[in-house]
């Protein structure tokens, strides 16, 4: 089944109440943070809270990811020591500049997996790209490990590196977004967009979500549950799209019986890429639960 990553909610690892209750929000992925939202003197606390929560709390079928600290100062290794043996979370590596960062992290993860008697490769990884180097190396990063499930843009650090700042419309991020998207698609993994931090600017948020959907992103990191609904709305296929997809799949089944590869539907040509898009729409609709309802009505 297709794994949706439309919404990835940041949860500060040392905020016990948020960690405990994170499961209540209708997001696809929860991303518990040990890095920037946790101050230095809270790192141990956050690791402990996360470890206990992940052990006890049932987050149902949500994808669980932990953003660890950098491996360059030893903190990232401690994070991994705590988390990997649980066998429950994917690891998001921050500030990934090159494929070597992924390789280093992977080899540390592999050591722990072996030590714990886990199957090597169980732990999935994500990489956040937050620098000019990272953007330019996006292709090799995305291909650096079979463990990778996605790459994500981290805009705040990137714009600093680029000597600019974020603006409405995100002109300054256009190259990075395109680069990351191409790299992700080339490697067959998810592309996740950066956070939108002004909680009160829901209009600006909406237009950014619409833009990244149009670019081809799979979803977006979010910092507050208030942002969930807009993303879900924009990233879920409309009823019209689902019905059109059902029609396309139907008409192609008929065509296949007759040995045809191209047919016409409502006066428009339907060929392979269109069928593939229709199938993707249906897969998404299946996961969102929309398909069951619409299919009933469609076949009636």
């Amino acid at each position: 089944m297709t794994k949706l990553r439309r919404t990835m909610l940041f949860v500060p690892g040392n905020n016990t109440s948020m960690v405990v209750n994170a499961g209540i929000y209708p997001v696809d992925s929860l991303m518990f943070d040990l890095e920037d939202s946790v101050s230095l003197d809270q790192k141990d606390n956050a690791r402990f809270v996360l470890h206990e929560a992940l052990k006890t709390i049932n987050y149902q079928n949500k994808e669980l990811i932990v953003r660890i600290n950098s491996l360059s100062n030893g903190m990232g290794q401690t994070d991994l020591d705590y988390l990997i043996p649980l066998g429950k979370v994917a690891i998001r590596l921050p500030k990934t500049d090159s494929s070597q960062d992924i390789i280093d992290c992977e080899s540390y993860i592999e050591k722990i997996e072996k030590r714990c008697g886990m199957k090597v490769g169980t732990t999935k990884m994500m990489a956040a790209i937050e620098s000019a180097n990272g953007v330019l190396n996006a292709y090799s990063i995305a291909h650096a490990s079979k463990r990778l499930i996605g790459i994500a843009l981290g805009a705040e650090d990137l714009v600093t590196d680029l000597h600019t700042r974020r603006s409405p419309g995100g002109l300054e991020l256009s190259f990075a977004r395109s680069m990351i998207l191409m790299a992700a698609r080339s490697a067959g993994i998810s592309a996740i967009d950066t956070v939108f931090s002004d909680l009160n600017d829901m209009e600006g948020f909406r237009s950014e979500v619409e833009m990244i959907k149009q670019l081809g992103f799979d979803g977006k990191s979010i910092i507050n549950p208030r942002q969930i609904e807009t993303i879900v709305e924009i990233f879920s296929p409309t009823e019209k799209e689902i019905i059109a997809a059902l029609e396309i799949v139907d008409v192609m089944k008929e065509a296949a019986k007759m040995g045809k590869g191209v047919v016409s539907l409502h006066g428009k040509m339907v060929d392979k890429p269109i069928i593939e898009r229709a199938k993707r729409v249906l897969e998404t609709a299946k996961v969102t639960g929309q398909l069951a309802r619409i299919e009933d009505e469609y076949y009636e």
Partner: peptide, 11 residues
């Protein structure tokens, strides 16, 4: 309220 938990319940 801006408390996300309360908003979720309200929704």
């Amino acid at each position: 309220t801006t408390n996300p938990k309360e908003l979720l319940i309200a929704l």
